[in-house]
């Protein structure tokens, strides 16, 4: 019981962050060794990336549609509905695209990775790999981390494209904003470097790294019981969400 005196939320969180950082170093060190398991990385890319496409596309479409609808009604107060395209594009590129994609990615792919690794550990598959002289860091952790890192920007681009499409669908096709006005405003305001590279690519890369790291770490350190895996999965969502939103603020401050 004495060991639990300082076992409060803060010190536990700090310990988790510290272990997570050390784990990141281990995973990074294992990435060169995982080159021979490139096929496994491709397979993970399929699971975390391609399998997340449906939810990402659906949500992107609806986020764009909601934005189009809301902005149209707010902007029509000022007679500025022509700016709908601009505001839809900018809000999706700079914030909603990376953040919502990352949150969905954490919920869809992050939890799956955590549960999978947690169960692999619980059923001794990780140990079996070690005993077959296959480094689990290089074979299990690194490919999933890399897959998350690669998949996030791609998913985010798909999300943004569908979001723009959704905004266009509602704004232009349903509410009657002029097609050319919609696009001309957007193309006039959106900058490739500032909004697409800084907003979409860098942010989603950073979020992908964070979500993938947290998911792999939680799975890898989950207690090998069903309860432990369940808690680890929950922690993946909670920790990822907090990390995404906190990191979003920092990145926005730096990149803008």
């Amino acid at each position: 019981m004495n060991a639990r005196v300082d076992d409060n939320v803060v010190s536990r969180s700090l310990a988790q962050i510290g272990e997570c950082g050390l784990f990141l170093l281990k995973v990074l060190a294992a990435i060169p060794r995982s080159g021979r398991y490139a096929r496994e990385t491709v397979r993970q890319l399929w699971f975390v990336g391609a399998m997340s496409l449906t939810i990402i596309m659906t949500c992107g479409l609806f986020v764009g549609m909601v934005l189009g609808l809301q902005l149209y009604h707010v902007l029509s107060i000022f007679g500025g509905t022509a700016a709908t395209g601009t505001v839809v594009a900018l809000s999706i590129y700079r914030e909603l695209g990376p953040v919502v994609t990352a949150l969905l990615f954490a919920g869809r792919a992050g939890t799956a990775v955590t549960a999978e690794i947690g169960l692999m550990r619980a059923t001794d598959q990780i140990a079996a790999m070690e005993l077959m002289a296959v480094d689990p860091l290089a074979y299990v952790a690194a490919p999933r981390f890399l897959a998350g890192l690669i998949a996030m920007p791609l998913l985010c681009c798909v999300f943004c494209a569908l979001g723009i499409f959704g905004g266009h669908l509602v704004g232009v096709s349903w509410l009657g904003i002029d097609n050319g006005t919609f696009w001309s405003n957007m193309t006039d305001t959106v900058e490739v470097w500032q909004d697409i590279v800084n907003g979409v690519i860098w942010k989603s890369l950073a979020f992908g790294a964070v979500v993938a790291l947290i998911a792999v770490f939680q799975g890898y350190t989950a207690p090998p019981t069903s309860e432990g895996v369940a808690y680890a999965t929950t922690r993946t969502v909670v920790a990822s969400s907090i990390a995404i939103l906190a990191l979003d603020f920092v990145l926005t401050a730096f990149l803008m």
Binding site: D124, Q125, A133, D135
Partner: peptide, 19 residues
């Protein structure tokens, strides 16, 4: 160590097949 492990077979209690 990994070189040595390649020469050792290990049978887990729960088989530990890759699912």
């Amino acid at each position: 160590l990994y070189g040595l492990r390649e020469k050792i077979g290990y049978l887990f209690q729960n088989s530990a097949l890759l699912t």
